[in-house]
């Protein structure tokens, strides 16, 4: 009889889950797209040899990979028997492993490219660290955020990555839809009915979103237009390093923002409401 083990072997869990993902997702349509991306990245290195050290497709591939491998788990995170501390530890491990998984995918392609085209692995890694990694780093924040908070806030509504199923398969909750239809009539006055705490939360959320967008812009641009960058940087190399530093700083701030929001959410108590300032249906 296989008895349950204590929660503590997060690393093993994640390795197991990672292997499972590799097996199932790489053998599906995502795998096919991944082969196309990988193939193109390798071809790109052939191009890169002629163009000195420019790799056009690596950054775009990063975006694709991020979109192809959304984080999973969703509601289950709150249904499984985790204490608050364990949940946070689990999220941390999951995100780091997720990032490792993406980086390893890239490195794998880099190594194949190195053997196939003879492109310098050093230059390939340099490009990766200068242009692509800050964006991937920021993405690990999105992973924990979507696993821990978004599912809670959007539940039972569906969102982007937030379900255990893909967003493309999501069906909106009919009950919630009806409720939303009903609330539509009072939405206009809803803002006035919000308590001071709720208004403050809404403002906080807006500030968070603005800061995060600002923090994402630089690494995303760095990642997407690295080809143009490289061209530019041939003439003024310091611009590349300057933007790389900025991208890393932005990614670090972005991660900090995510983490502070997660800590807040984990310690959050539900709202009780005051007096009759509620809209009941």
């Amino acid at each position: 009889m296989e008895k349950g083990r204590s929660v503590g072997s997060y690393f093993l869990f994640v390795v197991r889950e990672g292997l499972y993902r590799l097996k199932t997702e790489l053998f599906g349509w995502r795998g096919f797209v991944m082969i196309l991306i990988g193939g193109y990245m390798i071809l790109d290195t052939f191009e890169g040899i002629n163009e000195s050290d420019t790799l056009m497709f690596q950054g775009i591939a990063a975006l694709w990979v991020v979109l192809l491998f959304p984080p999973r788990m969703g509601k289950l995170l709150y249904l499984l028997p985790f204490s608050k501390k364990e949940r946070v530890r689990y999220l941390g491990t999951y995100s780091v492993s997720y990032l490792m998984f993406l980086v390893m995918l890239f490195l794998l392609v880099g190594i194949v490219a190195f053997f196939a085209s003879g492109y310098s692995i050093f230059l390939w890694m340099r490009h990766f660290l200068l242009c692509t990694f800050p964006f991937l780093m920021l993405y690990s924040g999105t992973v924990i955020d979507s696993l821990s908070i978004a599912v809670r806030r959007s539940y039972p509504n569906s969102g982007w990555f937030f379900s255990t199923r893909g967003w493309w398969q999501q069906k909106p909750d009919p009950v919630e839809e009806i409720r939303e239809d009903c609330t539509g009539t009072v939405n206009a006055t809803k803002k006035n009915m919000m308590s001071a705490e709720e208004k403050e939360n809404a403002k906080k959320q807006t500030r968070f979103t603005i800061c995060l967008v600002l923090c994402t812009i630089i690494p995303a641009i760095q990642c997407c237009v690295s080809y143009t960058y490289m061209e530019l940087c041939k003439r003024a190399p310091w611009t590349l390093y300057l933007f790389t530093v900025l991208a890393y700083i932005s990614a670090a701030i972005g991660l900090y923002l995510y983490w502070s929001r997660i800590s807040d959410e984990m310690n959050k108590k539900g709202s009780v409401g005051k007096g009759d300032d509620v809209c009941s249906l």
Binding site: M1, E2, K3, E17, E25
Partner: peptide, 24 residues
């Protein structure tokens, strides 16, 4: 709430052990 890509067997193997009294 489970990952629909997994099989019931794998789901049990993956998430079951988080429970103290899990009996495969």
């Amino acid at each position: 709430p489970f990952d629909e890509g997994m099989s019931p067997l794998l789901t049990g193997q993956m998430y079951g052990p988080y429970y103290r009294n899990w009996d495969m």
